[in-house]
Each structure stands twice: as structure tokens, then as C-alpha cells.
Design a protein around this nucleic acid. Structure first.
Lengths: 144, 144
DNA sequence: ATCAAATATCTCAAATTAAAGACAAATGAA
DNA sequence: TTCATTTGTCTTTAATTTGAGATATTTGAT
């Protein structure tokens, strides 16, 4: 059948991403953070202050999970909830100095690992890769 | 920084795969199967009889989860545990006729969705995509 | 033949996640 | 203005997943 090719791409994509997730989990095991907690901090580290909703959209977890994860991160003194004065439904998340320092201490190693993973791709290939993912992602939002 | 490019690829990969997973979950919501259960059946459907261990490796879930998921699938009469006579530690999983029929009824729609997702990639691009994923996956197993 | 190590599965407790609904606040149409 | 709808967050409950350890079997070295 001709579908085999697309299906192969699909399976490869899903399995590789899961293995990477697994690899990150192993890396984080040395800290007392879990993948989802790390993902939240990562978003704040790269994008600065964000609403809970924005972070949830980026890392794709439910609002219930967000509350749970934020509670934990707040207890660990990694971030702070900051109510938004303009819209009282909204709460912003901000890294604390501790959170900032923590991220600065572990990101270099994380970045190194990411670069190692994608290091065998040329600049051009990385570009192509992102572009192809973009095409796939675009299809996700097309009605079937 | 120059790392941005690799990091972009990394983020795109992780987010796209998560969105696809989400999309599959939504699709499966119409049945009474969850993603992990479906993944197990998918492996058996494509590869035939497999040991629990083999399936776990393919779909990357812990042994504890495997037991849980298999119990559920067995209760739903989708598959059967078959002890291996050659190695008494080993248990094979086999689709029941019901499981086979069920998969045959939902796979066309699933395949269609996969093909739609990857449909905007040419044959050549699909090939490239798989190849690039292969390179990344290979790096995963390289010591750092 | 014996025994340590490796392998395959299972059990159980604890952590995590999702799902549904509640609530408060903002928006926008009438 | 008013009210229905939407949005953002939280609560609660139930389902799922992990992680560590238990058990049984096999493998391989001595």
C-alpha cells in the first residue's frame, strides 16, 4: 500500500519525540523537577512573564494540571503568581530570582544536549526539518 | 546565539508531536479506548504477536503501565495473553478476533487522518523527514 | 552443577494527569 | 444598561502512569 510511507513518518515522529522526552526526564532526574515543571520554567525563561493560560497553550497541558504544577513550583520557590491588575481573571507567572538562577544553572547542559541531538543535522537540514514540521502542524488545524 | 536554530527544531518537534497526540486522543474519544490502549493494539495490528516487553519498548511505557493497560484490553476482549512455552518468563499478546475486527473498523479513518497530516509533504519530503528523524534518534543513543 | 546476574512480568503506593464542573471577571450584542 | 457568552483559573474526582521492589525464569561464568 502507498500509505506505508506516511505512516512510517508518523511513527518515526511519535517515537523519536517520546524518546527525547524520556531522555530529558532522565536528565532532570538529577534535579527535583519533573518534565512538566521544567517545561513551565522553560517557557518563562525564554519568554519572560506569561499568563497561566499562555503557558498552558505552549506546553499543551490541561488547566487542572497547570494549577497542580504551579503549586509545586511555587512551593519550591521557583516562580510566583502575580495577579494582573488590568484583567482580574488573569494571573501572570514570573520566575523568582531562585528560579532564574536555577534555570541558568541547568540550561547550559540542557542546551548542550539539544545541540548534540540535532548536531548531526546541517543548518540547512535543521531548517528543512522545521519547515516540514510546520507543514504537518498546519494540517492539524485544517478541518477534515 | 547560534543555538537558536537547533532549539527551534527541538521545540517544533516536541510541540508538533504533542499536538498530534492530542488530535489522536480526540479521535479516540469516540471509542472507549485511550491513547495507550490504542498504541498497544496498533503494534499488534501491524506486527502480529508480540511479547509484552516488545510492545513496551515500541510504545515506551513502563512495565507497570503495560500490566494495567493489558488488563483493561483483556477485559474489553481486544487481546489475549498467551504464555510462551519456550521461555516461561515471557507472555505474548495476540489480538482476539474482536480486537482484529475493531482495529479493522477504525484504522481506515486513522490512516486517513495520518495521510492528511502528512499529505502536504511530497514523497521525497516524507523520505527526508524520516531520514532526519533517524539522525536525531541515532544521536539519542550516543553517549554524551 | 552452582550461583550471580540478567530478563520478563507483576504488585502496590505515590505522583501525575485528565475531565468536568464551579466560579469570577470580561466582552459584546441587543 | 443588561444579559448571554466567553475567558481564565481553580476544585474535585477518577483514571492513568511511574517507580521501586517482588517473583520466577533464564543465561552464563566458574
Amino acid at each position: 500500500m502507498q500509505s506505508t510511507c506516511k505512516n512510517k513518518a508518523y511513527l518515526a515522529l511519535m517515537q523519536t519525540s517520546k524518546e527525547i522526552q524520556e531522555c530529558i526526564r532522565a536528565e532532570l532526574a538529577k534535579t527535583d523537577l519533573h518534565v512538566t515543571e521544567f517545561s513551565v520554567l522553560e517557557v518563562l525563561y525564554f519568554h519572560g512573564k506569561q499568563t497561566i493560560h499562555e503557558v498552558a497553550q505552549r506546553i499543551l497541558v490541561s488547566s487542572g494540571s497547570m494549577t497542580y504544577v504551579i503549586d509545586k513550583l511555587e512551593r519550591k520557590n521557583m516562580l510566583k503568581r502575580v495577579p494582573c491588575p488590568d484583567d482580574r481573571r488573569v494571573i501572570h507567572l514570573v520566575l523568582t530570582p531562585d528560579g532564574e538562577a536555577f534555570m541558568q544553572s541547568i540550561m547550559p547542559r540542557h542546551q548542550e544536549r539539544v545541540e548534540q541531538l540535532f548536531g548531526s543535522l546541517s543548518e540547512e537540514e535543521s531548517g528543512t526539518f522545521v519547515q516540514l514540521l510546520g507543514k504537518i502542524k498546519h494540517q492539524l488545524h485544517v478541518q477534515v
